[in-house]
């Protein structure tokens, strides 16, 4: 079976700083992969490479078996076909650390924006689906509110509904709870947990170790731009083979 997401040999540098040093990773349908690691280990960059929010210098990205075509533009790698990139992006749902809701649109407008204007689905259908999704994340009564009127937790749940509205083949979470006040983390994690239980394909970059151990089917520990260790969460969190992984887990589970 073709993997939903396949990354191979991803290299990414920012100036002199090489952030990713050849990372390969496959996510199969229904897998929930948590990506953990210290800040600066490259885990967010890796996630952002999948929908080409960052352009890797080397390596290949395939989504649903379709490889992103790249070309060299002035010595730098760039996507060869903007249409292909947009089409593939629209097949993924990305949830940002800072929610990144569109402040000039209501909750409902945020959710239907891409289905209507990118995927060109009928408006009525998009609204019906958006209402169901808002119900699911517990925000049905906030459909006409503006982002500025919501708490951080509500904003992030809106962002999750917005990602789901794309009918994505995979959901990508980039530290979804890092910008939240501690008392609001739970409501967002609960929504993500429900999604995992539905058998959705998900990649989650997170600092919530207990949550990662609990929700994921596989855990990946990234260190200094490379995969240090990966495997079932039970093993990674309880009996890691690498000293670095062990030290990292020990430091973070104690918090």
């Amino acid at each position: 079976m073709t993997p939903t997401i396949a990354l191979s040999g991803i290299h990414k540098r920012f100036g002199a700083n090489e952030v990713l040093k050849g990372v390969s990773l496959e996510a199969r349908e229904g897998e929930v992969i948590s990506i953990i690691g210290a800040s600066g280990s490259g885990k967010s960059t890796l996630l952002r490479c999948i929908p080409l929010l960052e352009t890797p210098e080397a390596g290949s990205i395939a989504i649903g078996g379709e490889t992103v075509r790249m070309r060299s533009k002035g010595g730098r790698a760039a996507p060869a076909d903007a249409h292909q990139v947009n089409r593939l992006r629209a097949s993924l749902g990305f949830v940002f650390q800072n929610f990144n809701l569109w402040a000039h649109m209501t909750v409902l407008q945020n959710v239907i924006e891409a289905p209507v204007h990118v995927q060109k689905r009928p408006r009525a259908e998009a609204i019906a689906e958006a209402e169901a999704l808002l119900e699911k994340v517990g925000l049905a009564e906030k459909r006409d509110a503006y982002p500025a009127q919501l708490s951080g937790g509500q904003q992030q749940r809106t962002a999750i509904a917005r990602a789901l509205a794309m009918r994505p083949r995979a959901l990508l979470f980039d530290e979804p709870t890092s910008a939240l006040d501690p008392e609001l983390v739970g409501e967002v994690l609960r929504v993500i947990r429900d999604l995992a239980a539905e058998g959705r394909t998900m990649l989650i970059v997170t600092h919530e170790m207990a949550f990662a151990a609990d929700v994921s089917t596989r855990a990946i520990f990234l260190h200094d731009g490379q995969i240090e260790e990966q495997g079932p969460p039970a093993r990674i969190f309880n009996a890691p083979t690498s000293d670095r992984t062990r030290a990292f887990i020990a430091r973070h589970l104690n918090r």
Partner: peptide, 11 residues
Amino acid sequence: GAVEAGRAAGM
């Protein structure tokens, strides 16, 4: 962030 969310949605 608003621009990035648009790009991520394939706009």
